[in-house]
Design a protein around this nucleic acid. Structure first.
Lengths: 339, 339
DNA sequence: AAAATCTATGTCATCGATGACATGAGTTGC
DNA sequence: GCAACTCATGTCATCGATGACATAGATTTT
């Protein structure tokens, strides 16, 4: 590993002068500059960023913590963050939080030790108060899910609005018995989506049948099972609102396996191939890449202007993409109910 | 930011003693240890990893460079690497190389400056000789694509074998005119898959019709277009071998749009929802998570035993997952040709 | 009892780059 | 001709943690 001192010796100057050349300090003669530069080339000098950033106390790194990097939604968010970060020569350190909320804090702490300059987190636990001690060391931005027991910037999708619109859409297509499938209401996102769902039903004067509220699934397979159970009910739903994209990839195959593609389906969150499935699946689209970008830009803005005030709570609008999965009224009981 | 010195002052000892307590050095009296520990707690001391790793010259970070983090294949690879890395308390710095080969080197260099302890790369350029200068600083492992103009460890899927098997599978189902769709043959991976395809045709005594070799697409949309052109040929193919998963997500919708799901399709690389499409798509499965894990383990093994010798070239077997998309002979011309 | 050994703790230097400040040579102005 | 400046370059200290080595008591060995 070549250091500045090595280059300095080779060029017959002091390390400081090499530093000056490297940082384009104007107070260096053309002659010296050239000698240093060729020494750098000969020795293939590559700066040790660790040394520089350690001195600055910063690392030029944005930490990212999401439930799962391999999830298409978070993968796209990560991409958005990366592209924004690169424009400022910052790198990203990515961490998956997994699905065990009790590990969140320790995973985050091991990231924080690396002196990150900012943290973007989509939390899985129900208490982020442990983050407060770092709030004046570096900016923290929440995405997808709002912080709990902590005040911090966040960028979330319009969970309530999207769920409301999705449910309303199903109602407009004649459905009266609409189920909601999703994970636990411990997740604020899910809670809001449930509220949106309820509000839409209320708005239409429809009953909130608790039997149709099938939340609490832990993974895709569980969601598929829940879906099967719903359809086995005496008074089964004619439509399903899947409150997150990951579970939709479980619900859809389940419907297909039961040969019940007559059941309408709408998904909160687009997912790969949703547009070419048969029937193609209507979704509430969230534009994850954009979420990543705005979160990264907020981090960068806060780094650049630590005292400036910003809007804490940011709700990103979502968009209904209508496809086939709830286009026609396929539910006989629903049309009967309309009379 | 609390430093060891702060803790030391609070506990009335020297920084070194704090360091000893932190690193479980046995030469500390129980009394001192407790005093230091409670000082740490009171001051919420979090070690500055940057300082420690800077001193060691290492960063406890594995760099990952892939064409696109948001691609499901590479997202899964990344996850595999992350899980293996975490077991050794290492973090991952992820970078997307994009699709401009001329940027590869500079993107890698900015990652290397961070004193990474290892690099896992799925390259996009056709010359990695620039990496040679770091080969004795830290281990480098290639995945998915073999290095060009450089000797380094690699873990690739069995491109030739997988393509051979896929093509043979189509042939076994009665297809005689089989097209191959994919990106440029500049990509070694694609070249090998083309060879596997050709070998299978040769084996079966079938002609290699250059008209059916439709490589060189740059993205998903281009692949879709190529697919349309193929079907417009006077003597159109009855089956398509899509040489990568990303393009399959373009080819499938194209077939669907043309209402030509009678055309058999097999994809090199599984992709989300491939199993629930109609028809579900047969694939050559690569197990990206495992690729990530073995690559990470190699990096860790090389760090642990720098002089030990390892197998450089590693080919990971692939597995044909048979689904509906080429189950039955739907190609009339093919069955006619069999007579 | 002196010497050898061990124990708990401290002091100092170090990793690489870079700010603060110093130095010495050259230039300008009166 | 010398003060006042400018400019190129050097020296030193620093960031936080930690190895190498030192020291001062306590304990054991002979």
């Amino acid at each position: 590993m070549t250091t500045m001192q090595d280059v300095a010796t080779r060029a017959g100057v002091s390390a400081k002068t090499v530093s000056r050349v490297f940082n384009d300090d104007p107070h260096v003669t053309e002659d010296t500059r050239e000698r240093v530069q060729s020494a750098m080339r000969e020795l293939k000098y590559v700066p040790n960023m660790l040394a520089r950033t350690f001195r600055e106390g910063k690392s030029a790194v944005i930490g990212i913590a999401v439930p799962d990097v391999a999830d298409p939604f978070f993968a796209a968010v990560t991409k958005g963050i990366e592209l924004a970060a690169r424009e400022h020569d910052m790198a990203i350190v990515v961490t998956s939080l997994g699905d065990n909320p009790s590990l969140e804090q320790s995973i985050i702490e091991s990231t924080v030790r690396r002196q990150i300059d900012g943290l973007i987190i989509a939390p899985i636990a129900t208490d982020q108060s442990y983050l407060s001690r770092w709030q004046d060391s570096f900016p923290i931005v929440f995405i997808d899910r709002i912080p709990t027991k902590l005040n911090a910037d966040y960028f979330v999708e319009d969970d309530f609005g999207g769920a409301f619109e999705a449910t309303q859409h199903l109602i407009a297509h004649g459905h009266r018995r609409i189920a909601i499938v999703g994970d636990s209401t411990d997740v604020p996102t899910t809670r809001l989506r449930l509220e949106g769902y309820r509000a839409a039903l209320d708005d239409a004067g429809l009953e909130n049948d608790e039997e149709l509220i099938a939340l609490g699934s832990r993974d895709t397979d569980a969601a598929a099972q829940v879906c099967k159970n719903l359809l086995a009910l005496p008074d089964a739903p004619t439509a399903i609102f899947s409150s997150n994209a990951r579970f939709s990839t479980g619900v859809f195959p389940a419907l297909q396996a039961l040969n019940r593609t007559d059941i309408a389906l709408i998904s909160f969150g687009d997912f790969p191939m949703a547009d070419v499935l048969q029937p193609s699946v209507s979704v509430i689209d969230q534009d994850p890449r954009q979420v990543g970008r705005v979160a990264a830009e907020r981090i960068l803005a806060r780094i650049a202007a630590p005292t400036k005030r910003f809007r804490r709570k940011n709700v990103i609008p979502v968009k209904l993409i209508e496809r086939q999965s709830c286009q026609s009224v396929r539910a006989p009981s629903a049309s009967a109910a309309m009379q």
